[in-house]
Amino acid sequence: MSGVILIVDDSATIRASVKNTLDQAGYEVYQAMNGQAGLESLKQLNGQGKTVSMIISDVNMPVMDGITFIRELKKNLSYKFTPVLVLTTESQDSKKIEGKEAGAAGWLVKPFEPDTLVGVVRKFVR
């Protein structure tokens, strides 16, 4: 299993848990704490010659929320086709739709089981 994945979430716990899980599954994981930071991380990674295979993003974040972040991504040809997985909670059904409309490839409900996360990521990155 290989591939570079960026996790964008304002919660350090969620970032660490996603990173730990995907690290173990053999992915290379980078973190950003909001949409704005996510865009900057992508630029940095790009500068290092790394292509991000997938982005996992929270919705409600300070500075730049997940929906705006996805819309920004879709404006950039380099990331237009990069799958984005939206992290939502079960109480946020509307966020799934909002995320899809912005261009997300899928969603994952928090809290998630490690196997579920790996399973979903495997849908997009192998």
């Binding site: 919660s11 969620i14 848990s17 300070p62 928090k110």
Partner: peptide, 30 residues
């Protein structure tokens, strides 16, 4: 929004590390 997000973050984190009591209660607060 910041208040909501703080509660939301605590709930999400608590769920992720298996603190179900905290996650459940915070859910009501949220």
């Amino acid at each position: 929004n910041r208040i909501f997000r703080s509660a939301h973050t605590i709930k999400g984190g608590a769920g992720s590390v298996g603190f179900t009591d905290l996650a459940g209660f915070t859910h009501t607060v949220e």
